[in-house]
Every structure is written in C-alpha cells, then in structure tokens.
Write a protein that binds this DNA or RNA. Sequence first.
DNA 1: TATGAATGAGCCTTCATTCAT
DNA 2: GATGAATGAAGGCTCATTCAT
Lengths: 214, 214, 214, 214
Amino acid sequence: MSSNTKNNKELLILRAAVRVFGQSGYHGSSIADIASEAGIATGTIYLYFKKKEELIIALFQRLIGDYLIAGRPRLEAMPAGFPRLQKLIAMHLEFFEGDHEVAAAFQVHLREANPEIREGIRPILVQYFEMIEHILLDGIEAKDFDPGLDVRLARKLVFGGLDEVVTSWVLSGHRYSLMNLADPLFELIARAVRGGAESRRHPVPRTDSLHGPA
Amino acid sequence: MSSNTKNNKELLILRAAVRVFGQSGYHGSSIADIASEAGIATGTIYLYFKKKEELIIALFQRLIGDYLIAGRPRLEAMPAGFPRLQKLIAMHLEFFEGDHEVAAAFQVHLREANPEIREGIRPILVQYFEMIEHILLDGIEAKDFDPGLDVRLARKLVFGGLDEVVTSWVLSGHRYSLMNLADPLFELIARAVRGGAESRRHPVPRTDSLHGPA
Amino acid sequence: MSSNTKNNKELLILRAAVRVFGQSGYHGSSIADIASEAGIATGTIYLYFKKKEELIIALFQRLIGDYLIAGRPRLEAMPAGFPRLQKLIAMHLEFFEGDHEVAAAFQVHLREANPEIREGIRPILVQYFEMIEHILLDGIEAKDFDPGLDVRLARKLVFGGLDEVVTSWVLSGHRYSLMNLADPLFELIARAVRGGAESRRHPVPRTDSLHGPA
Amino acid sequence: MSSNTKNNKELLILRAAVRVFGQSGYHGSSIADIASEAGIATGTIYLYFKKKEELIIALFQRLIGDYLIAGRPRLEAMPAGFPRLQKLIAMHLEFFEGDHEVAAAFQVHLREANPEIREGIRPILVQYFEMIEHILLDGIEAKDFDPGLDVRLARKLVFGGLDEVVTSWVLSGHRYSLMNLADPLFELIARAVRGGAESRRHPVPRTDSLHGPA
DNA sequence: TATGAATGAGCCTTCATTCAT
DNA sequence: GATGAATGAAGGCTCATTCAT
C-alpha cells in the first residue's frame, strides 16, 4: 500500500509534468507549474524526484517503457517481415495519437541539449532503436527485406520518418488523423526496405485490423 | 560601408552564437557567453538583436538561407527525378558534415518548445520542405517517381530520414563520415518513392559522379 | 517508567544531535539528519523538542549540566587556590578530550548569532563562569592568588585560554593529547593569577597527582 | 578609475555585510538583506563576490588584513618583550572598540562550522597567530619572557584571553570600555609569560601613551 | 556605436514544521 | 507515542535586459 501510494503520487506528478512540459517545454516550465498542475505543493515533487532533470528522464522512461512493454508482445505476435514492420508503424502512430500531451512532450524533448537529460534519455531510446533493428533483421531472415539492407541506416529512416510524421502532426495542432498515415507510410518504407522486384512475395496489405473489423 | 560594418558585426555575433549554442544549447548558453565568444561586450549584442530569441531565429535564417541560396542552383542543374533527389541528399549531408558546429546547433534546436522561437523557425523550415516537395513533384512529372506518391508524406520521410541520420551522427560525436551514407540513404529513399519495378528507368548511380565531371 | 522512556528517547535524540552538530554544525544539519542518526522518524523529534533551537540549547544544558554536576564535588574536594584551579583546568580538558563529538559541537556553537540560541545558552555558560570566578575568589581568600586580582577579568583569561586550547585541538583534528597541555596551561595561568613572587606558597605540582592517590 | 570604482563598490558591499552579519549573523542574513543595506540590487553583489561564503571570507581578510598592515609597524616600533606585548593587547582591544559592528561580526563568526568558510578564514587567522608567536619569541630573546615558555600554548592563552574579553564585551552590548581592560589584562598575561621572580627586569608599566599624554 | 556595470524578476531547491494515520 | 509524507516559505544564484558613460 505504501508502495502503491508512492507510485500513485509519482504517477500524478508525471502526468502533470507531461501536460506542462508538453505545453511549455522543459525550459519553459517551472517545478511550481508542475506542482500546481498536480495540485500539490512544490516541495512534494522533490520527495519523488531529486532534480528537475530526473522528472523528464523518468517521463521518457515511463512512456517508452510502457510502450515497449505493451508493444513487444503485440509486435511479436505478427509474422516477421512486412506484417511486423507494418504493425510497428501503426503502433507508433497509434500511441502518439492516443495521447496528445504525451506526443507533444515527447516530440519536443527528444533532442535536448542538457547533457544530463540527453544521457538519461539515450539508453531508453536505444532500446527502441534496437527493437526496430531487430524487426529489420528478422525481416531479412524472413526473406521479406533486402538481404543487403543496411539495418542501422534503415532504422534511421524508419524512426526518422515516423518521428517527423508525428512532429509535423503535433506542430499542426493535431489537425488530422495520424493513423490515416500509417498505411501510406508503411507502403513507402516497405518499398525502401524490400529488395528488388523479385523479392516481392508479400503484397502490401491494408492495416484494416486497426481501422475496424476485417 | 556602414551597412557592411553592421553586417560584419552581426555575422561575428552569429558565428559566435553557432559555436556556443552548438556546444551548450540555447538554454545552456547566456548572452554573456556569446558576447565573450565573439570578443565583444554583452550590450553590443543588443545593438543587433533585440532579444535572445532573435539570435537563434536569425541563426536558422542565415544557415538555411545560405544553404538554399547556394543549393538551389546546384540542385536545379541536375535532371529532375532521381538525380536531383540524390543531389539533395548528398548536399544535405555534405552541408552538415562541413560544419560540426552548425550541425550541432541545428539538430538540437530544430524542435524548440519556446513558441516565439518555434514560430520564428517554422517559415524557414517550410521553405526547405517546399523545396523537397518540389523535387518530389518534379520527379513524378519526370516519371521517375510513383505517380501516386503522397508528396507531403514522402517529404516527411525524406526529411525525417536525413534529419535522423544527421542527429545520430552528431550524437555519436561525428565519429564517422556522413557523406558515406549519402548513397545508401539515397538508394533506400529512391526505392521508396519509385513506383513499381517497371518504373526503374534510372539505375542508381554512384555519388562520386556528383562531385565533378566524370 | 513513562518518564524513564521519555528521558531515554530524549537522550537518544540529544546523543544523535551531538554527533550530527559536531560534524556538520547547527546550520549544516537538518532535523531529518538527526532523526536518521537517531534511528527514528523526523516527526518524533518534535514530540520532545518544540523547535530546532531547543535541541541545541538542551544539548548545552545537558552537557554543561552533567559536567558541572560531576565536576563540582571533585573540584570542591580540592583545596582552594592553586590545586582547585589546576583541577579545573585538568577537568575541562579531560572532559573534551573524552568526547570528540561533544568537543566539536561545543566549540563551534559556543558563539551562535541566532538570538534565541544565544539567550538559551547564556545562562548555562554563566553558571560555568561563576564557578570559575568562585574558584578565583576562594583562591584569593586562601592567599594563593593576588588579592588585587580582577576576578571577572581573570575568569575571561582562564576560560578564554581553555577555550582556545580546546578549539585549536578540535580544528587540528584532535591530533595531539589535550591532557598533556593541562599542566603547562595551569602553570601559565597560575603565574598570571598569583600575586608577587612572595606569594608563591605552593610549588606547581604535576597533574598526575590529581588522577589518583600518589 | 575603473579599479577605484570596483573597489568602492566592493567596499560598500563589505561594509553593509559587516553591519548585517554583525546584527543577524551569517546564517541569519540573506544576500537580499545585505544588498538592501548597501542600497543596491541583489544581483550586484554577485558581480563582486561569487558566493555568499566569499563575502564573509573577504570580510575577515579585509578586517584582519587592514589590522595587520596598520598594526605591524606600530608593534615593531615598540621594544621587544613586555612593551610590544602590551602594545598588542592594547591594539587588539582598541581595534574592536573602535568599530562595534566589526567586533560583532568578527566575534560571532570566528568559529564557523561551514567548512568552506572555516578554510577561508583559517589562513588569515594563522597570520595573526604567527604574529603573536613572534612577539612571544622575541620577548624570550629579549629576556623579558620565560625562556622555557611554550610559545604555541602561550599564544593560545593570549589570543583566547583577548578573544574572550572582546566577546564578553560584545555580548554585554558594549556596556563598558574595552580599553580600560588593556592594562589589567596585560598585567595578567605579562605575569603568565614572565619567567620566575628573578627575571622581572621590567616593571609592569602603564599603557599611558594610549590613554593620554604621559 | 560600444561598453559592461547594474538591475531584479524568476527559479530550483532545502528544510523546519505539521498532521493524518 | 511514533511515523514520514506533505507543506510552503525562504534563500542563493542566474541571466536577459537596460542604460549611463
């Protein structure tokens, strides 16, 4: 119960931090802002986080951590290769579309100059990068993707593309549906990672399952 | 000459700002830091820039402006379609590899939460985005690219991919050559934007051909 | 037993406070530090002491109180005059050498600017001062000391000398034996308070004779 | 002129600091208090002193430094031995009586637990201690003082006695004249450091020169 | 134009103290 | 009595910006 209480308050603070950071950015937000958003006293935040930097690092850990924990099994349930890549893209966009505040906070702070924050965020991101690379590797093994594919580079294209799509959407004020871009983006990327025409075993399917009943 | 002097001092300040922002980030740098790097007095900066925000906005304007001014003719000298897309990718990577400080300053501050900065940078970026989209449109017209290509989306993939490649390189401490990634990245993106296999009119050339007369 | 329990806990806290104050000083120590040193909860301290200031005042009371209670009979067992003065000096140094933490806490906080603490400590110190003055007065009466001695002033020399000796020893990191200074210091002070050469009834004895039967 | 301006402002701040520290103590005073006492803005203090600790250290340096610079020649003008010792005592008391605020600030902060302050003050104090020890050594050589005198110990008695006299006077609210204690204190100390009766070459003189025309 | 001292608002962080359990 | 989470006032320090020279 004590641990539950602690987790609850911690979560309360992190939720407030997402909102405030998402709106004003890390440097534009004060601890007092976050406390007031959370409905608690300033000092209380320091019972759960030692420094302001820790807040945003914990935010990333929590967000990506939850995402990965929830996402990995769903991904691995898909056949390696195109289906799994498609799922990844859909999940990524779905995740951010599902929470505008998280998206805003995430996109803005992904690159932060403060070295402490940078170093705190890096290992979390790396996990995600590795997951993408594994999907690419498995796709090569499954003969869906070009056997000569530079996996590191392709990962950058995949992540960079996803990231830019989400960032544009955030900056546009969420004026359109992210999920609608999942299929077209997948098709683009799928063509990039697929080998020559002869390797086109899989037709590019729709992500219907995400859009409604098959 | 007065205007020349003014431009000189302004440039001096901006050059100092690139270095300082590139190293410590916008929020980690003070006006005093920049003045000292430029070898001038703090107050002098305010003779050329009204606010700190203006500095970084001017930085982006100058950087991308120069890049576009220098790059456009070189791009348009290439045939529309794959060659021009390849040139774009090469130029982008070449540009950042040529100046580590510019690269650092650019990558870190591309997404900045401060609304004033955000709004100041946006129109500049948009120019670049539009240039990319034009390359894509021209490539469709030239029958190199898929006629059904979603140009807005493809632009995001192209820019996102380039951006992620540069960011990774910056975060790695510039430990490898960016230019070496130009060809492989182009091949990936080229496959993405090309239509079906039947449209492959152009073989994928080497980038060396871009650097001088064959 | 309830009172006993209370006294025990109070003592536990004071003992922890000596250690913590001795190491970090009053202003460098938090109530939480003391509680943690005592192995109790922060709030518990407030069941025994209303304010942080009370802690250090109680500390002085306890320390000097115990010292006086234990010391007075031992002092009064000595003949008035030189022997008793010698005993005082020996006891003072012995007391602090016996407990480095007490010494550190005492020396540093003897002069504290906080008016509440100052006023709280003063009456306790005054007791000690009066005891010294009585020793001097008795010594005059016993014809050991100069009949024209300014007792108030001599008290300051005696206490100031003792205090400075202990402070130096504390600041040196207790690198030498305090007790070894008892005799030499006594000799100096004895000469100061003794009248002309003709009054030198007592030869200056060794301190060892004070520690048990010869 | 620039250096003069700087010194002036620095001095202004230090003077304000003496007053504020003297009244409320280091820990009871805020930088804002000092700034307001000096009639300047908070931030201005940081143009002259990097940290709050530096303020009090500079205070000691300035005070004791000035005292030593002014005092040394006056001391050395006196014949070694009793006259010089007498002069020292007179000067010490004279110095503090001359500036109640300095006295208050000095006495309270001589022993400060904060390690940075402690270490900053130490070398300054050591200078004073060494000066006293030299006076004692020279007095031995001059055959005024006991050749067997433990100079280190005697220094502690001299300084401790002076210090306690000043502290008592400060705590009493400066209710009496310090200078009136110079002669009696000298007499006490002189007897302490003088050897046996046979060494009493010098009669104990009055410090008349300080009190008026001989 | 150029300077750089001065300003003062603002923010992170600490910690004595309280209080519900 | 005992706990320790919560409070919120307070303070050190930074730094964008101004302005007298």
